[in-house]
Amino acid sequence: MKIALAFMALLVAIPARGESDAMVRVDFSNPGLYPAQWTLVIHPDGSGHFHAEGGNKPDDQDAMISPAKVDRDVNLSGDFVNHVFSVAHESRILHGKCESHLKVAFQGWKKISYSGPDGVGGCEFNYSTDKDIQELGDSLVAVGSTLIEGARLELLLQHDPLGLDKAIQYVVEASDDGRLQQICAIRDILERLQDDPHVLERVRKRARMLLARAGS
Rank of each mutant, 00 (worst) to 15 (best):
K131Y: 08
E135K: 05
L136K: 01
I112T: 13
K110G: 03
E135M: 07
D118R: 14
D130T: 08
G121W: 02
Y114I: 05
G122E: 09
C123L: 05
V120Q: 15
C123P: 03
D138H: 05
D132Y: 04
K131E: 15
F106Q: 11
S139A: 15
S113N: 12
G108M: 10
D130E: 12
D138T: 07
G116T: 12
G121H: 00
I112L: 12
V120P: 05
T129I: 01
C123E: 03
I112A: 09
I112D: 12
E124T: 14
Q107D: 10
V120N: 15
D118N: 14
T129K: 08
G116H: 13
K131M: 14
D132I: 02
F106Y: 15
K111N: 09
E135F: 03
S139Y: 06
G108E: 10
S139L: 09
I133S: 02
S139E: 13
I133A: 00
K110Q: 06
G122M: 05
G116I: 11
D130M: 09
G116V: 12
C123N: 05
I133E: 00
S115G: 13
S113V: 08
L136G: 00
W109P: 02
S128H: 04
D130N: 15
D130K: 08
D118L: 10
I112M: 09
T129C: 05
D118C: 04
D138M: 07
T129W: 02
G121R: 04
V120D: 14
S139W: 02
S115F: 11
S115V: 13
C123I: 00
S115E: 15
L140R: 08
V120G: 06
D138L: 07
G119N: 10
N126I: 03
T129S: 03
L136Y: 01
Y114K: 00
Y127A: 01
V120C: 06
